[in-house]
Amino acid sequence: MPQLDFANPLMTTTLLWLFLIFGALYFALKSYALPRVATVLENRAARIRADLDAAQAAQREGEAALAELRAATAAARAEAQATVAAAMAEAQAKASAQAEAINARLASQVDEAETRVRAARDAAMGALREVAGSTAQAMLARLGVSAPARTVTAAVDRAAKQGAR
């Protein structure tokens, strides 16, 4: 097996060169190549972190703006509702006041009219009694019965009361 041919002087020199090459590779990588990779990876990680932070900040800002918008909308709605309610209450008050006034006027007119009707009726009734009294006097006179006017009037009144019933 050539790998165990230790008599070959090339075995030793190969190992010496191995250490030289490996050492050179180690220092080339350690001092030059790997730090560059590390820098690139760090920069990328920092960039990603910064971008994530910015995105989070933007999200927070957006959420705050949204909350503000919601609050403003709610306030405006409440104000509008209050205005509407006030206007409605005012209109109702006005309408009921007007209705009350009209009712009062109508009631007074009705009262007035009723009074007038009652007066007219009383007058009519008075006149009717007078006519009935005089008619009864005339009829009694024709029958030849004389009766005092007071008695006739009272009788007519009684009859009128019974007839009204």
Binding site: P9, L10, T12, T13, T14, L16, W17, L18, I21, F22, A24, L25, A28, L29, Y32, A33, L34, R36, V37
Partner: peptide
């Protein structure tokens, strides 16, 4: 003269390729 073998030649190839990849 310096005992540089075919084995060492491929070690150098490997080293050069690694550095080339990384750089």
């Amino acid at each position: 003269a310096v005992g540089f073998t075919n084995s060492n030649l491929y070690m150098v190839f490997a080293g050069v390729l690694i550095v080339a990849l990384m750089v």
